[in-house]
Computed example of a mutant assay.
Amino acid sequence: MAEQQDDRQADLRRGVRVEVASLVYNILEVVVSVTAGLLTGSAALISWGLDSTVEATSAGTLIWRLRAEERGADPRTVLKRKKVALSVVAAAFWIVVAAILYEAVSAFVSREAPGFSWWGIAILLVSLVVNPFLAWGKHRYGKRLGSPALKYDAKDTLICEYQTVVVLIGLALTQAFGWWWADPVAALLIVPYVAWEGLEATKDALSVDPDDAERPA
């Protein structure tokens, strides 16, 4: 029993480290991609950056939730923070859906092709390498800790990886052929998957009841 508790404490610490790394990197993504998107008028880059904002928020919430358990919080407090963490992750998915739709519709209305930014391309290429490692770490410790919020956060990071590929393709088509519509279409291709994960995360958040901690097993 003591050995299992020690293993869980070790997994909690590692889970926190993964989320801290995610928080720091996503702040970098936000600063670079949103700035580049605003300067070039790229709906896809801005949407990608907004998703990074949501990921950073999720990471911060999960750090708060995991540290409570790591520091020996009572079961009710752990369940409360679990519910909050799941709710934040669920809300994050829906915010991304709304932001992508807004940016895409705005791009269709303006009908203007985005400009080119080496900074935007650079952060996208770096993310192609970094995000799979972050997603792997989140899923690994989410599974070991039995944490749906961590596993959903891993899915959000994979969404970001998929979005990165789509945004790069959209920007390449825009620059190569002048297809102004490729940029907003690239953004819209992400919406169905994000909405589905948002629905699943919402269901899990609603299913958590902190009062369960006080009921007999």
Rank of each mutant, 00 (worst) to 15 (best):
1 M>H: 11
1 M>F: 07
2 A>L: 11
3 E>C: 01
4 Q>E: 15
5 Q>Y: 04
7 D>L: 14
9 Q>V: 01
10 A>P: 00
10 A>C: 00
11 D>V: 02
13 R>G: 07
15 G>M: 05
16 V>C: 02
17 R>L: 04
18 V>I: 14
18 V>T: 12
19 E>N: 07
20 V>L: 08
23 L>C: 06
23 L>V: 03
24 V>Q: 14
25 Y>C: 00
26 N>R: 15
27 I>N: 04
28 L>H: 08
29 E>R: 14
32 V>E: 03
34 V>K: 13
38 L>H: 09
39 L>A: 15
41 G>S: 11
42 S>I: 07
42 S>G: 04
46 I>N: 02
48 W>F: 12
49 G>A: 09
49 G>D: 07
52 S>D: 07
61 T>N: 03
62 L>G: 09
63 I>K: 12
63 I>M: 08
67 R>C: 02
69 E>Y: 05
71 R>V: 01
71 R>T: 10
72 G>R: 13
75 P>F: 11
78 V>F: 02
80 K>N: 06
82 K>T: 14
83 K>R: 15
84 V>L: 13
87 S>F: 03
88 V>P: 00
89 V>D: 01
92 A>Y: 01
93 F>T: 05
93 F>V: 07
93 F>D: 02
94 W>D: 08
96 V>W: 01
97 V>T: 12
97 V>R: 11
98 A>Y: 05
98 A>I: 09
100 I>W: 02
101 L>E: 09
102 Y>H: 06
106 S>F: 04
107 A>D: 03
109 V>H: 07
109 V>M: 11
109 V>N: 05
110 S>H: 09
113 A>G: 03
116 F>C: 01
116 F>H: 12
117 S>Y: 03
119 W>S: 10
120 G>T: 07
120 G>D: 04
121 I>L: 14
124 L>H: 08
127 S>L: 08
127 S>N: 13
128 L>T: 07
132 P>Y: 09
133 F>G: 04
134 L>R: 13
134 L>M: 09
135 A>M: 04
136 W>H: 09
136 W>Q: 06
136 W>L: 12
137 G>T: 06
138 K>Y: 04
140 R>Q: 12
140 R>S: 09
143 K>I: 05
144 R>E: 10
145 L>A: 08
150 L>Q: 10
154 A>Y: 03
154 A>S: 15
154 A>K: 09
161 E>P: 00
164 T>D: 01
164 T>N: 05
165 V>Q: 08
165 V>S: 05
168 L>F: 05
169 I>C: 08
169 I>R: 14
170 G>F: 02
172 A>D: 02
172 A>S: 12
176 A>L: 15
177 F>Y: 12
177 F>T: 15
178 G>Q: 08
179 W>V: 13
181 W>E: 00
183 D>L: 11
184 P>G: 06
186 A>H: 06
187 A>R: 13
187 A>K: 13
187 A>G: 15
189 L>P: 00
190 I>L: 11
191 V>F: 04
192 P>I: 12
196 W>M: 10
198 G>D: 05
201 A>C: 05
203 K>E: 04
207 S>R: 14
208 V>N: 00
209 D>R: 15
211 D>G: 04
211 D>W: 03
215 R>Y: 07
215 R>G: 04
217 A>V: 10
